[in-house]
Design a protein around this nucleic acid. Structure first.
Lengths: 222, 222
DNA sequence: GTCTATATGTAGATAGAC
DNA sequence: GTCTATCTACATATAGAC
């Protein structure tokens, strides 16, 4: 039942251009509304209004509210997974991987999309935070996020002795949490006295933080 | 209006013992239900049932649903802030502080309460994750969490050149995110291959991860 | 595919008896 | 303080016309 919400009904014939645009508008609107309000506080009515369609159309294209959420998350998760794995493969083709290189392959595809100011990708960052922090979406996370994350953990673990595997897994989760914090909790950094404005260096700083943290965790475990 | 939900009405006379117990039962139940379901999916009826009282009593003791959430969060936040600042003061009395010592003073009061298996403190960890990841609770976070967090950022920043302040603030937010991940996302670590079972070493490993990360962030900024 | 109208459930809050 | 009963609002979802 793992992908229960992602299956599409068989269609009689190809959807029209207009229908595809309507569907995309609904998905984009759902993404923004879910990210602003969270799953429960978001209403189908809000989404319909944001998409400028009638409420019944949201159910028609997205299925139930829960299925719509799954589809909205899965849509971008697939794009991101592909970009991350492609970046990893490209780096690997250049020669042996370093810890910093692997982390950059994981962070950069996400950060570059979110930080260039794309509203939809910024909204998606909040969705990931919602999914990651709530066991209610455990199955969704396992379906959309875990395969790629596991791949990266394996890649990092290969740089160290086998007995460090557990420490690498824990430190990678910390690293992903830090990435999400960068995307969703920047107002808190400002409140704590971070007055810097040059967003360009965020990626390198995050990589430096996480790489040093992972090294230290592994060193403790060895 | 910053503490709007935390003010109590003036009372005519002291509440009875029974009333105090009822109130505590309602707050504990609210803590558990909010942590399981999140704010919106939790209903006053669920909370009443969990506390084994009538629904109207929840409104009577907690005020509106939003006010109840504020009070539940604030109640434990105060205990934790006091414990953290006391630990910091005690360490300071012993001599000059190290980065590891400051981080331990911040993490330990929380981890020791959550990891000893106390249901209410485990529930509270989820509440903090909810508050921290949603701008809707920005004001609550600013009221309950920021004063203590700012104090710790200052303490860490004092160990480094002034121009590292921004990097310290960002790295501290990453560290708090890692702490929350340890408390709320351990199932993900297991899914990534962390098969270790000895919970006792989590504190030291987390401190090692964050301390190394902060050092690296500061080094980049200097 | 799209729209109108509505069925059905459940939410938060309170009035008023005890 | 506590309980019963209820008000009002809005949620999701679907039936059926076009």
């Amino acid at each position: 039942m793992s992908r229960k919400f992602l299956e599409e009904k068989q269609r009689q014939r190809a959807p029209s251009q207009r229908a595809l645009e309507t569907r995309a508008r609904i998905f984009d609107a759902a993404e923004r509304v879910f990210s602003r309000a969270g799953f429960d506080a978001a209403s189908i009515r809000d989404i319909a209004e944001e998409a400028e369609v009638q409420g019944a159309l949201v159910n028609h294209h997205g299925g139930s509210k829960e299925a719509l959420f799954w589809r909205v998350v899965a849509r971008r998760a697939e794009i991101l997974s592909t970009a991350r794995l492609d970046a990893l493969a490209a780096r690997k083709a250049e020669g042996a991987l370093s810890l910093n290189a692997v982390l950059t392959c994981y962070f950069e595809p996400y950060l570059s999309r979110a930080e260039c100011g794309d509203v939809q990708w910024l909204a998606y960052a909040r969705l990931v935070a919602i999914v990651s922090s709530d066991t209610r979406w455990q199955e969704l996370a396992a379906t959309c996020f875990d395969p790629t994350a596991t791949r990266f953990v394996e890649e990092i673990a290969a740089l160290y002795p086998p007995k460090a595997q557990g420490a690498v897994a824990a430190a990678f989760i910390y690293s992903v949490a830090a990435l999400l914090a960068l995307l969703t909790a920047q107002w808190r950094m400002v409140a704590m006295g971070d007055g810097r404005t040059d967003a360009s260096s965020h990626l390198d700083e995050l990589v430096a933080f996480c790489a040093a943290g992972i090294e230290a965790s592994v060193a403790r475990a060895s």
